[in-house]
Design a protein around this nucleic acid. Sequence first.
DNA 1: TTGAAAGCGCTAACAG
DNA 2: CTGTTAGCGCTTTCAA
Lengths: 336, 336
Amino acid sequence: MQLKDIAKRLNISISTVSRVINGTGRVNKDTRELILKTIKEMGYQPNEVARSLKRKSANTIGVIVPDISNSFYASVIKGVEKVAREGEHSVIVCNSDEDIQKEEEYVQLMLQKQVAGLVIATVGGDPQLFEQYKSSGIPFVFFDNLPNTEENFDIVTIDNVKAGYELAKHLVEQGHEKLAILTGPQHQSSAAERLQGFRKCLEENGLSVRDEWVGVGEFRRESGYKIMNEWLKRDELPTAIFAANDFLLYGAIKAILEKGLSIPQDIAAVCFDANDETGLIRPQITSVIQPADLIGTIAGEIILRKEKNKNRPVFEKIVLEPKLIINESSQKRIGG
Amino acid sequence: MQLKDIAKRLNISISTVSRVINGTGRVNKDTRELILKTIKEMGYQPNEVARSLKRKSANTIGVIVPDISNSFYASVIKGVEKVAREGEHSVIVCNSDEDIQKEEEYVQLMLQKQVAGLVIATVGGDPQLFEQYKSSGIPFVFFDNLPNTEENFDIVTIDNVKAGYELAKHLVEQGHEKLAILTGPQHQSSAAERLQGFRKCLEENGLSVRDEWVGVGEFRRESGYKIMNEWLKRDELPTAIFAANDFLLYGAIKAILEKGLSIPQDIAAVCFDANDETGLIRPQITSVIQPADLIGTIAGEIILRKEKNKNRPVFEKIVLEPKLIINESSQKRIGG
DNA sequence: TTGAAAGCGCTAACAG
DNA sequence: CTGTTAGCGCTTTCAA
């Protein structure tokens, strides 16, 4: 079923049919209606691939995230999808699985598919990578992890240093002096900046950041579990832990509970992104919550806008305010 | 950057270049290497849209789920993506948001985009809808909810009646006689069949299914919360509740806890799909766990296979075994 | 207001 | 082994 068929049926040219479908140019009112009717009757659906080829854009927004199972990323995707839908675009989603190799491949794939733009939480750190992304000529909007490069890109993020600072400050205010941190790969800005905020806070409060309590792993449960277990083997334990994302903390908590210790009585805990969709996570986690849906929405909007404006070389860095949700996992210890 | 450019640079025809890129036909070894080298140098990327137009397929698998935030669906998507990647396909993901209207729109969109096939957890119930899907001519693989139609489709599912039966049986074996059920829209097969299994079990065990304890809502937390609150207002309470999915149960548990009751001491609880990614959900839920990743994998494979075999009219109904995970939420009451 | 025709970037006969 | 050519289904000049 294509233009040709309905044109033939009506004994008119395909360009006229095309015109009424696209609402471009003037078409006689009667023929327009006849065409519309026939289209409906025959159930014609335009071939988007052909359109895209002609248009040189696939009306599609690409999204690449490290882990679609993480509800933070799922919410971002939903946000992108919402604006995409409104703008008559669709969304291709890819999971990089925290693997820079896969990320690169998927970026290539998306480019080949002529996406209008890419929303990406990169896991890469090599500036060359971003130059390559840049040279593609289509808009890349970064969130979560920012590109390590001098090139200009659009960015939608929170202030991770500040948020890390605030989160650590909360622990300090609860009277904690022995703090440990679990964070992710240091070439990922979110991991590095959250650590930086943590450091800054401790230093300003006359506390020392103890190297043996700076645990650098991956943003996964297994990683948090492993690092925490190392710490638990030692004589001296921190009184509070700070995790750069939820999965790291969940792993750490597992280790803590297995050891027979409890939260927050023995060890208090806070983290980023612990957005409890179930409402049943115990202990309830004190956490910095990013406005995930909004991040996706804004990122999507930037891409649609740039597409309309022929990719004008204007770059925005949008900094959103996260929320600090205080919960039982960091409650002050009664007594000492 | 296109075929033309590299052909021009080398003073050869574009078809030769095309041949080496696709590895089709015989090409002189030296020219092949020269071409490969030049492609790399110039950083040529084939235009997938043009290829797709020619090929009449976009090498893409479409996936439509009701809610990408639900970890069950997220895992299915991951499964599809894995096989898609291996088969050099990509995945377009859409959220129907449990809205049949959106689902239809997205199906149309996917068809227009010439996807190779569609993996879908439909939320629709009208047979006409499925005839329409059928007439598209591309393979639809259903999971989770099955199409309400006589038409043949590929299906990857668990036996929901049986699983519902087993889950209810577990409660009965724990000594429960006053059972309530929370389920989803009855035009969705998963909701209806799980209820059916529940009924069958109670009847076989000489227990009555009390209409006032059959709560039909949507597969959302709010729905479970609302229905449970109604029940909690009455004098007589069930001693156990059975929910057709995790979100329904999470909502119900919220209501129960707010009322000052506890699980499983006052009310035991079981459900489908409570796959705890965090490991911190309390109480830990007794649940039927579907092999989500495998569902996605198999569904993706079916589509790739059909694409290869020119959509041979062979339809498979694949029934997978779920796991019943027994946890504290359904523990036997000590005493009475 | 309409139609003819060029062309989007690529693949695949077909001919040489 | 290589080049020419005809489309894939659509949009969009340009003429009529």
